[in-house]
Amino acid sequence: MKNALVPSRTGSWYEATARERISGLLDAGTFHEFLGPTARAVSPHLALFDLPEAFDDGIIVGRGKLQGRAVLVAAQEGRFMGGTFGEVHGAKLVGLLRYARDHHAEATSPRAVLLLLDTGGVRLQEANVGELAVSEIIRALVEARAAGVAVIALVGGRAGAFGGGGILAACCSRVVISEQGRTSVSGPEVIETNMGAEEFDSLDRPLVWRTTGGKTRRLLGGAGAYAADRIESFRAAALALLDGGIPAFDLATLAREQARLAERLEKFGACQDAPEIWQRMRLADAARIADLADEDFNQIAQAQPEANHDAR
């Protein structure tokens, strides 16, 4: 389906809508949307709660080109119901990943999927079907990777990548994250509700970012690339990752990741807060990580073995 896209006015990934992100990420005029808004594939559940629907159910899927390479792309709209996975929303992503799995071998077919995650996780109004959707997406993602497709998560939106979105990011071949981006499974409010504010104070924003934010995820190796909060910066990072080679998805890769995770737990498991980890890693600017400019931070991250061994 042909689709006119509005470019972002500010160029900020965080501020942009999902459609603006696609517009700036891909080569101009190359995006072709599958099951776009005119198809009106809306949630069958939201009307039962008298809640507004979105014509694309909060996710845009399609194909396009990144510096001439054919890619598939999915972008969640974090401002529509927190970018949550409903039944239709999830089915669109499953379909895209299965398409990648089944067609990547043809000469002109896309060999990479870009997942623009911006989600709080499952849409609670859709409960079990949302949970099932996340399970199906994980299976489809794993199958696509096993078939040789590169799946790259781009995280820097308002909702971050939480719940099933955090699990999906961890299943990807590579993750690009910005300072504003956050990934985790249980969100700060969820932890506080279940364990108390003494365990995790969700109103303490610096704590939230020190724990789940982009800089921490990058230094620990949970994200393989760090981008400034600019759409062009995410584009450059995604391109560099595709050019740099994608790890094979096999038993040896998983065994190495498991060993690195065990080692991380042993080295840093007793730390109470992220700066303690930076001190143990002997980072020169351990106390100032949060204040570093993007370029300075990137240099430090690129020099750290821990940050580049790609264990989630």
């Binding site: 042909k2 689709n3 006119a4 509005v6 809508t17 459609r19 776009g36 808004p37 005119t38 507004p52 629907e53 979105a54 014509f55 694309d56 909060g58 709209e77 401002r79 529509f80 119901m81």
Partner: peptide, 17 residues
Amino acid sequence: SPHALVGVVASGNLEVL
């Protein structure tokens, strides 16, 4: 253009197809 979409279904906002 055969069709276009603007806006987001978010609080205080709307989408127009």
